[in-house]
Nucleic acid binder design. Sequence first.
DNA 1: ACGCCCTCCTGTTGGC
DNA 2: TGCCAACAGGAGGGCG
Length: 272
Amino acid sequence: MPELPEVETTRRGVEPHVVGRRIVELALHEPRLRWPVDRALPGRVAGARVTRAGRRAKYLLFELDSGATLMLHLGMSGSLRVLPADTPRRLHDHLDLVLDSGQALRFNDPRRFGSLHFLDGDPAAHPLLAKLAPEPFDPAFDADYLWRATRGRRVAIKQLVMNSHVVVGVGNIYASEALFRARIRPRRQARGLKRDEVARLVESIREVLAMAVEVGGTTLRDYVGADGNPGYFRQKLYVYERPGEPCRVCAQPVRHFVQGQRSTYWCAGCQR
DNA sequence: ACGCCCTCCTGTTGGC
DNA sequence: TGCCAACAGGAGGGCG
């Protein structure tokens, strides 16, 4: 999926087109997403004005003047584009948020792992959001915090940083990339990390996510931003999806293995 | 609480 | 060429 940089790029891309606009209609073509979309949802949002386009973890949050919030997750293969509302639908276009500007936010998601929820009341109280860890750019996510979060944990550090109860927004690409930058082997037990390694990892996570946001995220297959353009961070990846290719730092071949049913990439020369 | 495994779904790729 | 297994950016849920 879209990880934090891709979701944030999408948020920034749609924001100027959606904030201040009234929702003419939510056309739901395919309610069978990660969770079945409430059939009554379109009726609840029609006519409302969008006051804010926010993000929490990998969820997009469209706040409405009714006080409610429309929550969209892009899943593994989803994208959200701004298009003229009369643009012909393509395969896997599941919903259109039609705006009074004549444009629409169109959600496309081949694998249908995305989701759409209507939140009445405080979004932070929703079960899917309530237990989420701090954002990586939140000052609360610092070396002290990750130090405490790693103590006593036998799980591999790569799996730990992908755990949304530890920190949000870090998915499979950026977990490998952050560990490379922090010079830490992905299979290390979290509890075995030294204090300075934990501090490096916090900085690496922040750095790699920030750099990816700057260039519109990473496009491997499906992902495009709100304008339909891919993200360009793929060119900056050190290890992800580069098995056997020379490490950009030490020239040793990049290694690959499967960890918790997810591909992990790393460099034996650079990472300890 | 923790760690591991499975699941949802479609599309693409690589091996035989 | 066809067939089939493996794998793909997420993450909730169930189990021991």
